[in-house]
């Protein structure tokens, strides 16, 4: 696949991704095209590659837009992932996210425990699509709906590539 098409269809590429070598080889050209044609940036390092879009927004698997709570869960998950290790269960990750949410003044129970678990799972499903987490045993969809735990693999280096320097204003 053309590396530009690769980046548009998969805006985060882990280090082991088969499409990454071509992106590395043509990094300068691809960055220029992303900027000129899409107003986006490209960041490539040892952990992988990622596209930066200052107007980015996210959609759920069913095509509906992310809610503020889902965005919040994604930010919290990105915050905790670098320190959880290469293997973690969905429930443990949820617990870490929930604990950090409490420190951030978020009330996880405001919409009920099921809604919170689904919001966390939705954030993790997005991270799965990016290759930051992978399902080893069990699945995130089952965790979202039934609370059935799943063992996840974590690419901590790729997770560190996600926060943009300086954060949000």
């Amino acid at each position: 696949m053309d590396p530009m098409a690769t980046l548009l269809s998969r805006p985060v590429l882990p280090a082991a991704d088969a499409g990454l070598p071509a992106v590395r080889r043509r990094e300068t050209e691809l960055a220029a095209r992303l900027g000129d044609e899409y107003g986006r940036g490209l960041l490539v390092d040892a952990a992988g590659a990622r596209v930066i879009d200052p107007r980015a927004s996210l959609l759920r698997a069913d095509g509906s837009p992310f809610t503020p709570r889902m965005y919040a869960c994604l930010l919290l998950a990105v915050a905790v992932l670098p320190s959880v290790g290469a293997r973690v269960t969905a429930a443990e990750l949820d617990a870490r996210v929930t604990a950090l949410a409490g420190e951030a003044g978020i009330d996880p129970g405001a919409e009920g425990p099921l809604a919170w678990r689904r919001a966390v799972a939705e954030a993790l499903l997005t991270l799965r699509a990016w290759g930051v987490v992978g399902e080893i045993d069990g699945g995130l969809s089952g965790y979202a709906e039934d609370g059935e735990d799943a063992l996840l693999a974590v690419d901590a280096a790729l997770a560190r590539l996600l926060p943009l320097e300086g954060g949000a204003s």
Binding site: R55, A56, L58, L59, F66, P68, A168
Partner: peptide, 29 residues
């Protein structure tokens, strides 16, 4: 990121997306 998550959670849809874009900025495929 945690502090920002608190702001995002309390924000409206558009503001939440804007904050996400500034902090992470990975677009939808």
């Amino acid at each position: 990121l945690a502090e920002l998550a608190g702001r995002v959670d309390a924000a409206g849809d558009e503001e939440a997306a804007r904050l996400y874009a500034a902090a992470i900025g990975v677009p939808s495929p």
